[in-house]
Nucleic acid binder design. Structure first.
Length: 166
DNA sequence: CGAGTTTGACCCGCGC
DNA sequence: GCGCGGGTCAAACTCG
């Protein structure tokens, strides 16, 4: 049931996502149907983000400024057709939660980038309508190079460095 | 033994 | 004000 009408373009110009077994990404729905997942207006640059009182008697020491980041954070969602929920995009993700959503009969998984200085999050959810479709929502931008990519590029960079001497 | 996953509880925003 | 739905935390657990 793979109605693939868009074979992978073999243009060698993609610097991002050169991964080995990348499933087909529905970039069309990405670009045309921007946000029907979360129609959140990313206005309200919450400058006044006082941490919540949270005067709980030492229960959850919720380190403030965690949930309050609903301000201007780039987020984009796209659909992939894959049998596997998690697709290897070159980054390392650590799962930190899973919830069952109301509309979908499948649970939604929450991942966070394992890089120290990188607090990019993503959530993965399988469509109940079409179980072969997985909706991935990225939130934030990586402030570090993709290690998979660096691994691939490393010898190339070395060679360039070598050639640059001439 | 460390990194990552599982899972239940907690917290919060929003609609009624 | 209350209940629901969704997002996150953290302890326990698993796997390499």
């Amino acid at each position: 049931m793979e109605g693939q009408e868009t074979p992978p373009p073999n243009n060698p110009s993609y610097l991002f996502n050169p991964p080995p077994h990348l499933p087909e990404i529905d970039w069309v729905s990405l670009l045309s149907g921007p946000t029907r997942l979360h129609s959140d207006e990313m206005a309200s640059l919450g400058a006044a983000e006082g941490d919540h009182g949270l005067g709980n008697s030492g229960e959850r020491k919720r380190a403030s400024s965690s949930r309050s980041h609903k301000a201007t954070r780039p987020r984009f969602a796209f659909q992939t057709k894959s049998a596997d929920d998690i697709l290897d995009d070159g980054f390392r993700w650590r799962k930190y939660g899973q919830k069952s959503v109301k509309d979908s009969m499948y649970p939604r998984s929450y991942y966070r980038c394992t890089h120290h200085t990188c607090n990019v999050k993503k959530q993965v959810q399988r469509l109940s309508k079409d179980t072969s479709i997985v909706v991935t929502t990225y939130e934030g931008i990586h402030n570090h190079p993709c290690e998979k990519m660096m691994e691939t590029l490393s010898p190339l960079l070395k060679q360039m460095h070598f050639l640059a001497r001439f």
